[in-house]
């Protein structure tokens, strides 16, 4: 139980003492000492003579009050107000909140609460239909017409005992970004720069003859990352290879992966099908691309690179099978 500040406790005790006609000190001692605060507050809600109902956990009621705003936003609010003849004044603000909340609670809690509240005021006919209506008379319970505002305030104190936002941060094994991550990144960056520099010194980017609209090279090939698609185009209708595969499978399909794959596990052993599918895609696209880059010669016909040479200008300086 979270510590309730002294002044709040005192204010609460004063209100309760006024309601019950007891000395303030006694109530305060009761709240602080022998009984837990939630237990002690019950007489304020029920009349003094009421026998505490076994099985009614005070925390359950607190739960009900707490969860009231976030569960059903009072669809039943008007309903419970009608049937009771001894209905409380409309100004009682605690009531419409409590009623729907008790309904959404597990039946046990709601009934237990209801039974207790039933005793002081016998319910009118038709009351048994809804559990919420049973709970409803509770605000009438205080005998000496305690001011409503005071009670609401006391309930707020109880809500404060549990935070509305439950922080669920688990302690994680963390290290400082500087220097542990930044150094790694810096090394990776240097390695990449070095690699690219060496590559650029060794390999000359291709530059063929000036563009000539009247001279179509044979074969004409797309950039390598589209060559898998161009390869597909030589097997299938353009509608399939040029449209369906890249846009439907390639783009929309990939974007939808997280929404289609509902399996929450990230363990490879639980994701055999997903991993198989992706590996299949990887192998397929790699095969198609390699076929398109190396094994397609004149007229985009099948050819062996070691026999007919490489028909891909970006790679001309890289691979030499025939001199």
């Amino acid at each position: 139980m979270v510590e309730i500040p002294e002044e709040l406790l005192r204010r609460s005790a004063e209100a309760k003492a006024k309601a019950l006609g007891l000395p303030v000190e006694q109530v305060l001692a009761e709240m602080k000492g022998e009984k837990p605060p939630a237990e002690a507050e019950r007489p304020a809600e029920a009349p003094p003579g009421t026998v505490p109902v076994p099985g009614r956990d005070p925390s359950e009621q607190v739960e009900a009050i707490m969860s009231a705003p976030e569960e059903e936003p009072q669809p039943e609010a008007p309903q419970p107000a009608t049937p009771t003849p001894s209905a409380p004044t409309p100004s009682q603000e605690a009531e419409p909140q409590t009623a729907p909340a008790a309904e959404t609670e597990p039946a046990g809690a709601a009934v237990a609460t209801a039974v207790e509240e039933e005793e002081p005021t016998p319910p009118p006919a038709g009351n048994g239909a809804r559990k919420a209506t049973l709970v409803e008379p509770r605000p009438v319970a205080p005998p000496k017409g305690a001011p409503e505002g005071v009670r609401t305030q006391r309930l707020l104190t109880v809500v404060k005992a549990r935070a509305i936002q439950q922080v669920k941060a688990e302690p994680a094994d963390k290290v400082n970004t500087w220097p542990h991550l930044m150094l790694n990144e810096f090394v990776a960056l240097l390695v990449m720069t070095g690699f690219l520099l060496i590559l650029s010194v060794i390999l000359q980017a291709p530059l063929l003859e000036p563009a000539n609209f009247n001279l179509t090279p044979n074969p004409s090939k797309a950039p390598w990352y589209f060559l898998g698609l161009q390869e597909l185009l030589s097997y299938f209708d353009p509608q399939i290879a040029g449209v369906t595969v890249p846009t439907v499978i390639g783009l929309i399909g990939f974007m939808m992966i997280p929404y289609v794959d509902r399996n929450p596990s990230t363990k490879p052993s639980d994701r055999k099908f997903a991993i198989m599918l992706y590996t299949f895609f990887l192998a397929g696209s790699a095969t198609l691309t390699i076929l398109g880059v190396l094994f397609r010669g004149q007229g985009f016909n099948f050819s062996y690179p070691w026999r007919d040479g490489v028909f891909f200008d970006d790679l001309k300086d890289w691979i030499h099978f025939t001199e």
């Binding site: 530059l207 063929l208 000036p210 563009a211 609209f213 001279l215 797309a222």
Partner: peptide, 13 residues
């Protein structure tokens, strides 16, 4: 680069 490679690769693409 506006060479033959560029022109026809983009044409195919």
């Amino acid at each position: 680069p506006w060479d033959q490679l560029a022109l026809w690769a983009v044409t195919v693409g």
